[in-house]
Each structure stands twice: as structure tokens, then as C-alpha cells.
Write a protein that binds this DNA or RNA. Sequence first.
RNA 1: GGAGAGUUGGCCGAGUAGGUUGAAGGCGCUCGCCUGCUAAGCGAGUAUACGGGCAAAACCUGUAUCGAGGGUUCGAAUCCCUCACUCUCCGCCA
Length: 422
Amino acid sequence: MLDLKFVRGNPQKVQDVLTSRGIKYSLKDFIRLDEQRREKLFNVEQMKNRRNVVSEEIGRLKKAGKDVPDMVMEMRDLSRSIKEKDEEIKNVEGRLQEILLDIPNIPHESVPVGKDAADNTVVRKWGKQRNFGFTPRPHWEIGENLDILDFERGGKVTGTRFCFYKGLGARLERALISFMLDLHTGEHGYTEIFPPFMVNRQSMIGTGQLPKFAEDMFKIEGTEYYLIPTAEVPVTNLYGNEILDGGKLPISHCAYSACFRAEAGAAGRDTRGLIRLHQFNKVELVKFCKPGEAYDELEKLTGHAEKVLQLLGLAYQVVVLCTGDLGFSAAKTYDLEVWLPSYSDYKEISSCSNFGDFQARRAGIRYRNNKGKAELVHTLNGSGLAIGRTVAAIIENYQEADGTIIIPEVLRPYMGGLDKIS
RNA sequence: GGAGAGUUGGCCGAGUAGGUUGAAGGCGCUCGCCUGCUAAGCGAGUAUACGGGCAAAACCUGUAUCGAGGGUUCGAAUCCCUCACUCUCCGCCA
């Protein structure tokens, strides 16, 4: 959420942002509502002031044994009008809030201007695409042949976009989770969190999934709880409505969680394999820092996610998202894309973003600065990494001509010393 | 699921025959004094949000906030209702 005062003071800039993100909404209504609100507020506050003053006087006079029916009558009327005015203000504020909650973040100045994913720019590449001496096969084929992935039974037991991992496949999934968590806690200084996989509505609003993207979410029937689409949601909201000690910043958390996504707008895309499931595992990195540190922290966090790919020996590229492709809450995002032979292309495996104070304002996450003033923190997060897509990348990039899979060196301690899945 | 207790400021904790209590007291923290050092001691200060004034900051001023929302009342932390959460006991359960 943007600062109301900022929008008030920079309507043209905000309007431009909306336009650049393809949102056709005129801020004129908003500005008018805001003016209305302030006028009404000023008005009612004066009335309340009078009520306070007179009520106090009534108390004093009554104590002195005097009866003041005319004053009481006047206050009765005044209170009635106050109640009406308060109602009006509440309505106006509700509408303002609705609009404000649907306005996306402002991209950082370093973000390239562009229309869609085609305008994203590659920042760097790492590793080289393997030269197979045979025709590489997609991971779903290899996985099914080795009996470590079972999509068919996933469909039978639950439905489309669900999958069973089996035997060494399940082991590989678990190994990756442990490997990533160990790396981030041991080498990168993150404190591990194991969060709830369901959150309430307020938390979803805090990180920006709601109210705008309700159709992407699974809601638990009969409750106000939602399945989390990423650990970002519970972990960022961990400090919601708190004022943190500035000396403790930056705070770095990593968290494993299952992630649940409805994939409402993705019908027909990535229908095969592990790439786009309704449920997948992910290790997430989350940071809370002071405003001045955020962009340094973004580079660091991105580097931490890259480190996972490097240690696994997977070729990837780093892409900076252009204004048109940027997520709703983000001010700047780097996507890490891993080389996937079955796609003959790089495919997103991590998304690392700085949200500035956008989420912090929604969730109420502040810290006390060195002047003793409460100030919004800046929040960041990134996948470190998406587990399912990592499994896919390992299967495809480490496959042998005979259909077996070499296990990357760093994972072997987590796989009972095994060096191959066959 | 049944029965009961609770939810006050950064923390602890007062505060019910409704009235000047944003809220006693303590702790913590900040600044100053004092002091070989440290500790102790002394003094002052120490919430947030949203308005108004100011070009703006400082500052001044108003309103709101004692879990959330509603009600009663001239006036509510204090009374009533609903909800959420926490705790205890019972039941159930991994």
C-alpha cells in the first residue's frame, strides 16, 4: 500500500505508475474522496471537541449539585449528529482504503520500463547448458520411468496438477529442503522458521495477496483461513503490528513450507511435470531491514539464492523484471531462471524482490529509528529455491543416456551417500 | 465440544457505586548531574495514528486509541451485547 499522503502529494506520478502497469483507473475520484474525508473529519472533530468540553462542564456542575437539563439536551442532539457524521466518514474511508489496497507499488528507478516479460533484461548468466550426447528427455518421463514421480495417481487421488513423489524421488525432495535450509542458516546467516501453512485474511492483505488476487488462493471452507501460496505470507506477517528494535535489523529468516496456488489464470500452461502444481514445496528467504539498506540486501539475498544453483551445478540466468512484468507488491524483482532442457529455455525457479515499505505499511511492521521515531521497515523476500522446479532441473540436467540420474555432489550426504538414481 | 478466568502503554501492573486518567506505580530506555571505573544515587523526559496551523522542519493545536466491533449515556478502560485470542479444568485426539 502506498502512503496516502504520498498519493495526495504526487497524484500524477501515481497515475503514471498505474498506466505503466496497465491499470485503467483515474485517481480523480480518489483525490476527491480524500478531500471529502478531510473536510468531514475536521468538521466532526470540532463537534467532538465541543462535546468533550461541555460534558466535562456538566460533570463539574452536577458534582456541585446543579441540574443542567438544557445542556444535556443540547449534547444529546450533538452526539446524534456526530454519530451520523462518523458514519459518513467511515464510508468514505472505507472506499479510500479499498482503492489504496488495489494500487500496486511504485517501481524503483533502476527498473527497466517495459510492457511484459519480453522486455525483461538479462543481468548475468552462470554455468553452461550441458551438451548431451543423446536426446534429453523431460523430467516427467524420466521420473515416471524410474518410478519416483507419479502424476497419474496424483490425478486420481486429488486431481490435476497434483503429484506423488516416491522412493528416491521423495528422498530427493526432502534432501533439497534440508540442503537449502542448512546452507542459508549455516552460511548466509538466516534464522529458520517453520510457519503455519494457513493464515487469516489480515495476513493475506498484509503481504498483498488480498484483496485483489483472491482467485489465486485456496480458502478453507467454513473458516476465514487461507492456504498460503508461499511462506512469505506467514513469515513477513510474523512481525505485523509490531515495532522492532532498530538494533536487531536486518532480520533474516528462511522457511520451508508447502505452497498452495489455485493457478486460476494458468489453464493450459505447463500442464505436464512438476513445473506448475497446485501444491509444491519451497524454501523462502525473508528479510526486514532499514530503508537505506534495502537495495544492498536485495543484491545479497539474490546472491544467496544463486548460491544454491551454483552448488547444485545448474546453469541459470538472472533477469531483472521490467515495469510491466513486476508483481503487484514489488518495487524491484530479480528472477532466477534455471536451464531446463525440456523447455529448451530458462525457467523461473526463484523470484527475489524488494517491497520497500509497501508490505510494511499494510502489515504494520515498524522499527524505532535512532531518533526514537517509529518508522516502517522495508521487506524483501526470494525463493531459495522452489523445490519442485529444482527437482525437475536436476532430473533433466543430470540425466544419463540410460535414463538414470546422477545426484549432484552436494546432495549426496543428504541421500545416504548415494550418487545415482536408477 | 463442555465449564470457568483473562485480554490496559516497550514490559510488569493499578484502575467497577461511569466524570477532568493517554491512563497511578514499578521496570526498561533516553538525556543531564554526580561518581577513579562499574554499580548505586539524583533530576528531566519517554505511545501511535489521523486532521488543522506553518513554505517546511521544529513546534503548537484537535480527534481517536485501555483485544475488535456494536449498544446505553451529556460523558465509558469502567455498564450491556457480539466476536477474536490467551489460560485452566473436563472430553476427544496426532
